[in-house]
Amino acid sequence: MRRVGLALLASVALTGCVQTRQYADVEFSPPQGDYKLLVMRPDVSVGSVTTGGLVEPRADWTEQARANFLVALKAQQSGRGGNVFIMDKRDSLAGVDPDTVAELERLHYAVASSIALHRYSGQYLPTKRNKGLDWTLGEDAVELGRRTGYDYALFLYAEDSFASTGRVGLQVLGIAGCFVGFCAPNIGGGGQFGYASLVDLRTGEVVWFNVAQASSQIAGIKFGDIRTAEGAAQMVDRLLDRMKPGRNVRRRERGQ
């Protein structure tokens, strides 16, 4: 019995994790001083994990998380000195029609998918080796910068899900099974995932990209909750707080 208990503890310790992984343009230095930042409408969703493992979207939780995420984002950015505007709708940018915003969001989605595939999912491209982050949104982004006067655009995505009672029950059964020799201690269920992508509107390039993940493989154990004010602040912090400069910039700093 004691052995099983120890094994369980070990699996809990090993399988739960909070991870962030960022990439930056080799010449990237985090925006400082009097920069103007445009935050595109954050894409936030929250769901519940059913017993069978499907994620069911929850309207009330999503509303809550969206509101808290915006508040947390404003608080986080106000501490950084920049001049920030956060869009909560596609048409909240004066002088730019929502279709143009939508086009840019779709373009960014395609580029971000490519970054996810070739930087995070192991499908590395030989042409991008040792180049840090080498993706661009091109002229469309530059045009938006010219028209609005913003230096950067930030794209944000965050999702969170919670194990339902049934899922937790299933997990309990899986752990209980360990005592009779059928062990399923980590069926998983629920967790956070998000990414942040910073685009330099003067060049159109994606200069910094960060993915944050917080999940446990044991249904019912959580590493944050973006429905709450603290949880949303924690997620914003995981996504945006420790922005590292690009490789060449770091080398020069070290050389000095």
Binding site: T50, T51, G52, L173, A176, V180, G181, F182, A184
Partner: peptide, 27 residues
């Protein structure tokens, strides 16, 4: 359709886990 899928995967998960545990207990 969503409810049907949810119900069936729920039932399947519990049956599978239950069968595993029962099988484990029965060897």
């Amino acid at each position: 359709q969503w409810r049907d899928m949810r119900r069936k995967t729920d039932v399947f998960s519990f049956l599978a886990m239950g069968a595993g545990v029962a099988g484990g207990a029965a060897g």
